[in-house]
Design a protein around this nucleic acid. Structure first.
Lengths: 208, 208
DNA sequence: CCTGTTTGATTGAATGACCAAACAATTCCG
DNA sequence: CGGAATTGTTTGGTCATTCAATCAAACAGG
């Protein structure tokens, strides 16, 4: 029963968080959403921060799962035989899908980024979130660079940072303005990345 | 006296905001920082939100000014005769400098983005902030596209959205982790943009 | 099988602190 | 004198956290 209740509270926290935002969500709100007494949330989580970090991690799970289902586990190995550019292409398509399916999660994510600017515990969670995703992009980038005849000036890490940043910035524009055409922006990013990757090749594969 | 006092309060609000963050900054804090009585802030600003929006706008002023000093007014006309790619290059260098000089401002900006996810009044200010900067990049992009022999698939707006997003995402990584090498990431973005812009030219100008 | 005890889960009220906003009183200055 | 600027307090409310009390289920021994 214990685990079930704890999970119920975390789920309720996630829902309340998405609906109202970090600072507008009180422990009482969460308890009410979960259908338990106000004191119980503190029985399982020492502080509000602890509960909310758990809620965010919980919220990331389904999104992570879709990446793994597509064979692109951010933590596992990348398929060795696949064409790196095809992997990149798949990544961009997944990014579009992710935004479509998990808009709520990113709403919360941007809220957390904001909280993290002045809250060390949340900042640590945010750093972890960024590191994970950027490292994943860096691994794909490594493969792409390996296929380029002329080595780029920039490191895979720097390229990954710019690329993750672009996706993140596109997500933000979509969250702030739902009429924003995120797919077109991601396509533009892809076009730039591919021009960069194929422009340095000895044999031109295709003119995108 | 009136204007002077009002300004004093706005400045104090900006400093307190940078130091403590949006939700951890109370009207009393701001009044204390400004050296005035707690009630006076409400004499000039009806609500806390109003004061904080004013503080953010105030914080943006010096950053905007450096762009204008460099001849790149986000609102005015772009120099007609300049090479578009040179303008872009200047823009990337300015972005690096901006981050170096106004890191505080971006700390606050990300805080505001977070608040904006669940606060309509702040969301409107955020949308305005994004629109301004993205439109500016779009104007430079228009010029770059005009110099390309093969028209890209993506519109200038989409490319500008991806580019603004990348810069924003790089700024975020720097704010969250001060050891992050933002200059390298911006250089990587520039390398990609230039590969994209020159790779489509009839006559190769230079291999970056 | 029954009963008294222990344990952990859960409750709801209480605590202590803080806040935005409203307000009445005072000072300043033309 | 009179209105604008400024003060400091009050109001009404919310919040995270604590805590004593209740409850239900497992458990032990006779």
């Amino acid at each position: 029963m214990s685990d079930q209740t704890k999970e119920k509270i975390v789920d309720a926290a996630y829902r309340a968080l998405v609906r109202q935002g970090y600072h507008e969500t009180s422990m009482k709100d969460i308890a009410a959403e979960a259908g338990v007494a106000p004191g119980l949330a503190h029985y399982y989580f020492q502080t509000k921060e602890d509960l909310l970090v758990a809620a965010i991690e919980r919220g990331c799970e389904p999104a992570l799962k879709t990446w793994e289902d597509a064979g692109l586990s951010p933590h596992g190995q990348l398929p060795e035989d696949a064409d790196p550019l095809a992997l990149a292409q798949l990544g961009f398509e997944m990014a579009k899908q992710e935004l479509r399916l998990f808009g709520d999660l990113f709403l919360l994510t941007f809220d957390m980024f904001g909280v993290g600017t002045h809250n060390p515990k949340i900042a640590a969670a945010v750093r972890q979130f960024i590191d994970d995703r950027r490292a994943f992009i860096a691994r794909i980038t490594q493969g792409v660079i390996a296929g380029m005849a002329i080595r780029p000036d920039s490191s895979a890490e720097a390229i990954a940072a710019a690329t993750w940043g672009s996706l993140h910035g596109i997500y933000l524009q979509k969250v702030i303005d739902p009429s924003f055409d995120a797919d077109a922006a991601i396509d533009a990013l892809r076009e730039m990345v591919f021009a960069f990757a194929t422009g340095h090749r000895t044999s031109r594969v295709g003119d995108n």
